[in-house]
Amino acid sequence: MSIQTDIANQAADLSVRAQDLALLAQSALAATEPVAHAVEPFMLLLTIFLMACFVGYYVVWNVTPALHSPLMGVTNAISSVIVVGAIHAAASAESNAARAFGFLAVMLASVNIFGGFLVTRRMLAMFQKKKA
């Protein structure tokens, strides 16, 4: 008899503990939820950023030194992809200041996009194989 009550008591104890644990887990989850949402996109971007750094590192070491000037031309042109942010800014109707800055940024970046790619094309055209 006493063994049975012992087991019953232990079971009741265990259920209480399990309940506590579940409560604890729930509150922990509740605490981490907003943080997780705030951190995730940043961690994702950081991961992409670091990977891209490695890709850039290996790709650029493979560029032949003779083409280092065109490399600067191309990187200059693609870094003006900042125009994407500028377009967003110019499109935003919330603030006139944001719009004005966006417009200026679109204009400056466009100078680079067209100038960068075209000057690179001019340079690369000179590196054609010459007819002997």
Partner: peptide
């Protein structure tokens, strides 16, 4: 050209500052 990228970055930062909703 590099100076233009730099300036564009400043301007985009400024518009993000004045209109954070759109970003």
């Amino acid at each position: 050209f590099h100076s233009l990228v730099g300036m564009a970055a400043v301007f985009v930062a400024a518009s993000a500052f004045y209109s954070p909703e759109s970003f």
